[in-house]
């Protein structure tokens, strides 16, 4: 399964480390990553890929959501096909 993970919030030390550490634990491979500061907010986007027969979507979503609560960041995950459907012919 492929999904887009977005992380938005106040910049702080170790965001990339925490998110990628969690994804590694969940057996999610990061295939693309982009990070910037937009009007003071830390904004990171990751493309994750994993075998959903091993780890289901809900488990990854829950893990990211818990990390979001813990770090005060807004973390979302959405399956990638939605973006292709809306933005590409």
């Amino acid at each position: 399964m492929k999904a887009v993970i977005t992380v938005i919030g106040h910049d702080q030390i170790g965001i990339v480390a925490k998110v990628s550490q969690l994804l590694a634990t969940l057996k999610v491979n990061i295939t693309d990553i982009s990070q910037t500061l937009m009007s003071g907010d830390f904004t990171m986007m990751l493309m994750g890929e994993w075998d959903d027969a091993v780890v289901d979507f809900e488990k990854v979503k829950q893990g990211l959501s818990d990390l979001g609560t813990e770090t005060g960041l807004d973390i979302h995950i959405q399956r990638q096909e939605l973006f292709d459907a809306i933005q590409k012919l």
């Binding site: 904004t43 986007m45 973006f83 933005q87």
Partner: peptide, 13 residues
Amino acid sequence: METKQILDTIQMI
């Protein structure tokens, strides 16, 4: 990864 398009979509929602 087309970050602008992804952000646009997220903003729409």
